[in-house]
Amino acid sequence: MQKTWRSSVLLAYSLAVLAFLYLPLIILALYSFNDSRINAVWSGFTFKWYQALFQNTRVLEALTNTLIIGFFSTIISTALGTTAAIALHRYHYKFKTVINGLVYLPILIPEIVMGLSLLVLFSQAHLPLGKPTLILAHITFCVSFVVITVGARMEGMRNDLEQAASDLYATPWQTFRYITLPLIMPGIIAGALIAFTLSIDDFVISFFVAGPNSTTLPLYIYAMVKRGISPEINALSTLMMCATVSMVVLAEILQPRHHHRSQEE
């Protein structure tokens, strides 16, 4: 008897926590289908805000910017992060833990500090602010996440296959290309997806280093709010949320953390 009482309390508590986390997002998404301009009143179902969104050239421009920046920073940070992860995993050297720590540090540094320091760096180096500076900034924080995901994949991997390959006279490059790379691929893809997600969602750092012709979607949403929250913003936020969630889910599926998965392979 007592047991059921306890579990129902636990259930209620869990539901309350979930509601606290997700209710605001659900309401935001619901009101993107609201016929009325005013968020407080529900007056019918409509897709018109989504239509308006896709006719708004400024939004499309911001979307293009976001995708271009996301694309380049993902490619570069994945390449850099993967090579770093391999090197960190394979070689043993002095101060290894310190160097490992340095790689992870950008995750822990407050975004606002990082944004500010990058802005100072760019203006000291006389770099014009714009897409290139945004890409550089995004690479900076994405690399750490790629190193972590690829590193996690390598942790769970033994090196007997690589040894077998070199026993069979494969060159180091062939070993890497045909053995190591395919093995760590799920980690790389997961890392790339996380990097892309972080890049398209980033606000604080982008806020500091954006320049002409580089307004991204998060920056645009922020500026739109100032002019009064319209359901168009709800629609845009809902779309961004869906994109983010699906990419994180995909990355999670590819993550090597699940043990049954690595046994299968």
Binding site: N65, I68, L127, G130, K131, P132, T133, I135, L136
Partner: peptide
Amino acid sequence: LLLSLLSGCSTGPS
């Protein structure tokens, strides 16, 4: 150098 590389790439799609 990095930037000129990047801006070279990014003007295409934009």
